[in-house]
Write a protein that binds this DNA or RNA. Structure first.
Lengths: 199, 199
DNA sequence: CCTACCGATCGGTAGG
DNA sequence: CCTACCGATCGGTAGG
């Protein structure tokens, strides 16, 4: 009978600590204690503290990827696709807040060789958003002038939710997603000129 | 004749290092070297490394405050006031990027007693934005349903510019400010219902 | 602002 | 996964 490894406990402890205190401010002794062992015991499961951070970032990247990728291929009207993408992203951001925070911010503590692979994961995820916006622009549903800037704008708003959202707060994630989607669709709908003046 | 103190050099070095590497990853030896002295020499000017961070956050808070406060009292139409506020905020964010980053993020490395005064500076600044939005709502120019959420939304987008803006990039800060202001005004203009269907 | 230094703590290893 | 430990580095001080 294989008894359960404690690796998941270590990852869980590190995720919580890295997200709350930051990678540099977290010691291997902190992690070991939270996982119920002494610091030397960690090294039966990991090679370095930095590997732990990479592994958490990878988990988080997969979580974002799996939330969004299926949606991108769906045959939806662009506004509805955007609305569902906003909801999917915010669900990850609010329901795995520690992992999400590490994917969004704390990966920057990695040293250059490992940063680059993380950067590729991030670019791959952002490419899904580019595709959603591109599709909306091609179909004439999104009239925004600068798609690259619009993508940055959209993801800025959404990612920041990770910093302020609290599960016991005034708004649930569905409410935030609905309002944010509505607002972002106003941005993407393009200039509204009720008087039909030429611009 | 009072010769010029090296305190400004220390602050400048610490601002650069804290913003690039983070507070925890920056050593007092790093700062001293960048300021042209040995680490013990720092302590002729400061009491602790943390004091240095507090001082930088205070400088940054003042810079944001001085950019926005005069504007808030001006007799401008709400959309124009918002546009000018966006520009003022983004100018600080892009022209003092290191200081701004410390005001926006790195202050969280402070331990609880000092964090609280920083939090008050931040709340004071955010109150100006609340006032701008409130005024627009009262005058009927901004029709957004949830002013508190709108303020978070607006500041999220604007603050994130600090993370991606590069002086040698495709867009200058004026262009980013103009487009962002346009987009945010679409959000704040409220629902546009060209067909006059009831909602 | 420098030389010299300190106690604490860091990430990680040896050996079982 | 533990006991025992290591070299490096940390923020900061003494004394001038």
């Amino acid at each position: 009978m294989p008894r359960p490894s404690n690796k998941p406990r270590i990852l869980e402890a590190a995720t919580d600590l890295f997200s709350r205190k930051g990678f540099r401010a977290t010691t291997v002794r902190d992690i070991a204690e939270a996982a119920g062992m002494v610091s030397a015991g960690l090294y039966a499961h990991i090679a370095t503290k930095e590997d732990l951070l990479v592994e958490i970032v990878r988990e988080a990247a997969e979580e974002f990827e799996q939330a969004l990728a299926p949606l991108v291929a769906l045959p939806l009207e662009p506004p509805e696709k955007l609305r569902q993408a906003v909801r999917a992203h915010l669900e990850v951001v609010t329901q795995s807040p520690a992992r999400a925070r590490i994917f969004l911010d704390e990966w920057q503590a990695l040293s250059p060789p490992r940063r680059e692979s993380v950067q590729r994961w991030r670019e791959r995820y952002e490419a899904h958003w580019a595709a959603i916006l591109q599709e909306g622009a091609e179909q004439g549903a999104f009239l925004v002038e600068d798609l690259a800037l619009a993508r940055v704008f959209v993801l800025s708003c959404l990612n920041a939710v990770n910093r302020w959202y609290r599960p016991d707060g005034r708004l649930g994630v569905e409410e935030v997603a609905d309002r944010y989607a509505t607002w972002l669709l106003r941005v993407l709908a393009g200039p509204v000129d009720k008087t039909n003046h030429p611009r």
